Amino acid sequence: LELTLRVGDKTWHFKDVDEEFVRHLEELLKRGAHEREIEEIIREWLR
């Protein structure tokens, strides 16, 4: 999967994204996660 995600003024483009990561992001967005929380999840995933 490829994913382009825009949060606030930042845009990330990922290739070979894990479906579990996408589901986790979807859940965060559904519950109205704040920009900082989403950025933290992305940084963790990139490690």
Rank of each mutant, 00 (worst) to 15 (best):
L1F: 15
L1Y: 14
L1K: 12
L1A: 08
E2A: 04
E2M: 05
E2H: 13
E2R: 06
E2I: 06
E2Q: 09
E2D: 15
L3G: 02
L3F: 06
L3T: 04
T4Y: 07
T4N: 08
T4H: 15
T4V: 15
T4L: 13
T4S: 07
L5K: 01
L5Y: 02
L5T: 01
R6M: 13
R6W: 02
R6T: 15
R6A: 10
R6I: 15
R6H: 14
R6D: 06
V7L: 11
V7D: 01
V7G: 00
V7W: 05
V7F: 05
G8M: 02
G8D: 01
G8T: 00
D9Q: 05
D9L: 03
D9R: 03
D9I: 02
K10Q: 08
K10P: 00
K10R: 08
T11C: 12
T11P: 00
T11G: 01
T11E: 13
T11N: 04
W12R: 00
W12V: 02
W12L: 03
H13T: 09
H13C: 03
H13R: 05
H13A: 03
F14N: 00
F14H: 00
F14M: 04
F14R: 00
F14T: 00
K15T: 10
K15I: 12
D16A: 15
D16V: 10
D16Y: 13
D16I: 10
D16K: 09
D16L: 14
V17P: 05
V17D: 10
V17S: 15
V17Q: 11
V17A: 12
V17W: 03
D18S: 13
E19I: 15
E19L: 14
E20K: 14
E20P: 15
E20A: 14
F21V: 03
F21Y: 02
F21S: 04
F21K: 03
V22G: 02
V22P: 01
V22M: 05
R23A: 08
R23Y: 08
R23P: 01
R23K: 13
H24Q: 11
H24T: 12
H24S: 10
H24W: 13
L25P: 00
E26I: 14
E26S: 10
E26Y: 12
E26R: 12
E27W: 08
E27V: 09
E27S: 12
L28W: 05
L28Q: 08
L29T: 07
L29E: 03
L29I: 15
K30H: 10
K30A: 12
R31A: 14
R31P: 02
R31F: 08
R31C: 04
R31N: 13
R31M: 13
G32F: 05
G32Y: 04
G32T: 04
A33T: 12
A33V: 14
A33E: 06
H34F: 04
H34K: 14
E35G: 05
E35P: 14
E35L: 11
R36T: 13
R36Q: 13
R36L: 13
R36P: 06
E37L: 08
E37Y: 11
E37K: 07
I38E: 01
I38W: 03
I38F: 09
I38M: 06
I38Y: 04
I38H: 01
I38G: 01
E39G: 04
E39S: 07
E39H: 06
E39Q: 05
E39Y: 07
E39C: 06
E40P: 03
E40H: 12
E40L: 10
I41R: 08
I41G: 03
I41L: 11
I41F: 15
I41Q: 08
I41A: 12
I41V: 14
I42H: 06
I42T: 01
I42C: 02
R43V: 13
R43L: 15
E44Y: 05
E44F: 06
E44V: 05
E44K: 09
W45V: 05
W45H: 15
L46W: 06
L46D: 07
L46H: 11
R47N: 13
R47Y: 08
R47P: 09
R47F: 11
